[in-house]
Design a protein around this nucleic acid. Sequence first.
DNA 1: GCTCCAGACTGAATCGATTCAAATGCGTCC
DNA 2: GGACGCATTTGAATCGATTCAGTCTGGAGC
Lengths: 368, 368
Amino acid sequence: MKGKARPPDGNGPRPPDGRPTLKTIAFMTGLGVTTVSRALKNAPDISADTKHRVQLVARQVGYRPNRAGVRLRTGKTNVISLLLNTDEQLMGFISDIIYGVSQELAGTPYHIILTPYSARSDPMDPVRYVVETQSADGIIISRTEPHDARVKYMTERQFPFATHGRTNMDIDHPWHDFDNQIFARNAVRCLAERGRSRLALLAPEPTLTYYRHMTEGFAEGLAASAVTEVPFRSVWVDQPIDDIRDRTAELLRRAGRPDGIVCGSGTSAFALVSAIEQCGLALGEDIDVVTKQSTKLVQMFRPRLIVVNEDFRLAGRELARALMGRINGRPTAELQSLSIPGGVVEPPEVPRPATVSLDTRLTAAMPK
Amino acid sequence: MKGKARPPDGNGPRPPDGRPTLKTIAFMTGLGVTTVSRALKNAPDISADTKHRVQLVARQVGYRPNRAGVRLRTGKTNVISLLLNTDEQLMGFISDIIYGVSQELAGTPYHIILTPYSARSDPMDPVRYVVETQSADGIIISRTEPHDARVKYMTERQFPFATHGRTNMDIDHPWHDFDNQIFARNAVRCLAERGRSRLALLAPEPTLTYYRHMTEGFAEGLAASAVTEVPFRSVWVDQPIDDIRDRTAELLRRAGRPDGIVCGSGTSAFALVSAIEQCGLALGEDIDVVTKQSTKLVQMFRPRLIVVNEDFRLAGRELARALMGRINGRPTAELQSLSIPGGVVEPPEVPRPATVSLDTRLTAAMPK
DNA sequence: GCTCCAGACTGAATCGATTCAAATGCGTCC
DNA sequence: GGACGCATTTGAATCGATTCAGTCTGGAGC
């Protein structure tokens, strides 16, 4: 007999903290822990009878596997990490993504952990941290770049991830994206149809992949409608709104000012409109603005804004679905989806707009 | 010799996955794991010499304790759970709280886990889940009620938590709150000074504690300034903005409409202003609105809004600080803080407002 | 009667950190 | 010289779930 420091645990029905463990169930059923463990995961070498019995008891006592135990033994954390940039003006955008992700993860054992970072330090840091310490089974990132170091890093290490936005690398990975190219193209066409001929684009940061999509779509629109561009490339949607407003006002006071603006984010539309009014121009008369929106707030204020909805809850759901798919070894082709802008919502004739809700269709088939 | 299935691990410098463990360091230093473990936490019975050596090696190899190991053995998760209601219009509010919390937690081993819930199901569910499964060391909740079942539950189980908002129970617990009573009182005074005499209040949901603070402050203001109230109690700040707008428009078209409104949230101010303009009234002339704001977006649009800043990042920091304090056993008195509204920012004379940044002082002393 | 085998089940090791109880080394004191 | 105390250090058990390598039972096959 090996000198036990204390007599072995009496195997009583429950440990002191009250939570049932495998041992509890083993004791109650008179089986061994191994059998219980295997019975709960429907292993083939356990008799159907035993499985039922074990599962019944487990349900009765409210058994839930101890996460630390599983994690220590298997390395599986049942956690997915949401990397989020904390220095942007996110405006409900984040909470919608979070909501979508958690919707998709409800009913699974997954927890969502937030890993905040600031662009002021190295964006690789949080990725490295999660991968190295294996603190999650997968990561969702946004602000994706054409050649994204994070994507390269995680791919090399075979660490599951999904990106909000696409890359331009020879790496095939799960992603979800909003089709900003179509958005910009349609926006230009819409402005052209309203007789606007001198258009500016308030684009995202040039380092991000969707900058390219948006500028390309914008250029295509210009070419198709024979309208001209008023360059407005020194300011981006993620900059502080005061800056955007000031630069916009500057633009509008210059000779040859635009009579139409395509705006890449709902938040910056506030700044645009503010600048327009500050310059004494009338939205919808002297100038039109087409913008993406994720809440109805902007349009509530200014019914004459032309808006296209971007559904971030959908994005959250799709990203979670893509990441889960990767973790479960599904083929990458199933894990890429593109959200097509539902269409441009033109301002209604009546001052009081009816609320317009748009379908957003996906190119990739949705299960169920 | 007990029949080992496989020869014992060669104790090689590192396990296959590359992460150093206590064993790795024990091997490198020639010490036992126990010594290494104790040396790393500065136990008094380890010689200074050994401590230095162990800590040096640990730093060199980039040792980080395995969270699952610690958690399994000690029950400490190093996780705090942020409960969040997913059916509100949160508008950047959430991301600011998150930012504040993560700011405070940076440099600690704590991770932030999100536990979303919908008010449509039982708000106790997520609390019970976290407490029962011990999936976090502490919880931060918001939407606090005067008699909050969650507070009672967690207190009974001695589970650490902090609330955003106060309670009215005979339970002393960590909290952070914004002084909505002072806010409302000052708002009324401000409106009275501008010659407004018929005031309405857009209050929060009556079940929440801060409904009382805000209505009391409002009532005090009324009494002090001899202005009258126009009842507007069938609508709350957290309702869908379309509803708020519609009800406000209704109110404004009624005889004896208010000439001043105090608004309890930045988001709903959008709806108020929209309704005002829709009714053909001019903000700042026919009617004044005092509102809380957490971003500058509202005021950017309507410089004539009168605003008071509410800093949610500060709230996040304070909540995290309070919860950490509780977990570390500090006295509750240190863990309660009230954010005093910095003052009412009246609209500037010039059309283009300078950005006004307000101090927010705390009644409780801040450490450091 | 014997072996062999499949089916059902289980003991014991394992993941990494903590901690109890004990061991070791060494200098002191009577 | 031997017992004692002090400062250090360490083996082994422990947390809960998983899994390798068995064991045990009963029936089939020769």
